[in-house]
Amino acid sequence: MNQLVRSLEIESLTLLPMTPTIGAEVEGLDLSRPLDASTVAALRQALLDWKVLFFRDQDITTEQHLAFAGNFGALEVHPFAPHKPGYPEVLAITHDDKSKGRENTWHSDVTWRVEPSLGSILRALEIPPVGGDTLFADMYAAYDGLKDEVKERIEGRQAVHDFAHFRIAMRKRGATEAEIEAFNEQYPMVEHPVVRTHPETGRKCLYVNAAFTQHIVDMDEHDSRSLLRHLYAQAAIPEYQCRFRWEKNSIAFWDNRASQHYAASDYFPAVRRMERVTVIGDRPY
């Protein structure tokens, strides 16, 4: 869609939507430069409108990556994933012939935290010759599309979230049970609403994901498992999605409160090297 859709009252900022509800490419912005308050406000509004923003040809330094993310809040340090040496806030995500991609599950980042992230900002440093796209799903649309009887079943319900697959990975790497227990104490399982109200838009969105949600509180195990399978499947509906084809120095900035994402792991054994910075959010309600 090569047409001007919204300038947000900033002459140099053009948004090119990828679908009717989710995903917009931002043109005319150089993220290596400091952003003024009006540009930051416009980008924040654009993020709320489109759930994920994309930027091309951003040959920026790590410091500039961090500075851009810092416009939107404090930055988190991921306790499990590898970080870039000297930069604890920067996740280093590399896959090659020795490490197949593992992010090919629909999820929202770090929902096992008491205060999951506001958003994540991912930059492509090296991409495979083909493949390695990331898909994003609009979780407002996922909720809106549910049948009324399903909405009634999940209204007011809470679900438990846990870092279970990180725990498995730690054991494979040889972590002791004492080390794992220390993480369990620091990051205990948390309960979040199955349907979250977005703190800035006030809209309801589906807030369970296949990577971190364990079960629905006070529900029979079989019923919980069956209902969660149905809810997880909503992210896979194409009408709720956009798909981004990476190029070197492309950046994606997504709202973890209103979207889920899926990194297609179809490029093995090629190299896909990314860096991610994440903005701390608040407790869902």
Rank of each mutant, 00 (worst) to 15 (best):
T105H: 15
A159I: 07
S99G: 02
I168T: 15
L48E: 04
L13K: 01
T176D: 13
F72S: 03
A92V: 05
F166V: 08
R157D: 07
P188K: 10
L206D: 00
E25G: 07
Q58T: 04
L206Q: 01
A141P: 01
L91W: 03
F212I: 05
P129S: 06
D138W: 03
H65C: 05
A233V: 01
A81P: 07
H107C: 07
H83N: 13
F163P: 13
G131M: 10
L43A: 04
A37D: 06
A210W: 08
D148N: 09
N104P: 13
M139F: 01
D148G: 06
P269S: 04
T94N: 01
P284Y: 12
A74D: 06
T19L: 04
E27L: 15
V5R: 10
I93Q: 03
F55L: 05
E11G: 01
D36H: 08
R123N: 11
C242V: 12
I60G: 03
R273Y: 09
I93T: 00
E275F: 02
A233F: 01
P193S: 15
A74I: 09
A46F: 04
R44K: 14
H78P: 08
S226D: 14
F183T: 04
T61M: 07
V217W: 11
F253M: 14
K51G: 02
R102V: 15
L47C: 07
A169W: 09
S12N: 05
T19E: 00
F163V: 08
E115Q: 13
Q45T: 06
E221M: 14
H165Y: 14
A24I: 03
S265P: 05
L16K: 12
R173E: 15
R243L: 05
M219F: 12
F136G: 03
D144I: 02
R283Y: 10
R113D: 05
H198C: 13
P193Q: 15
Y87K: 08
E239N: 08
F163M: 13
E89T: 15
T14Y: 08
E177A: 13
F212Y: 14
S117C: 14
A210L: 11
K151S: 06
R33I: 14
M189T: 08
P20V: 11
E63Q: 12
T39E: 02
L13G: 00
K147P: 14
D30E: 02
A46I: 03
P88N: 10
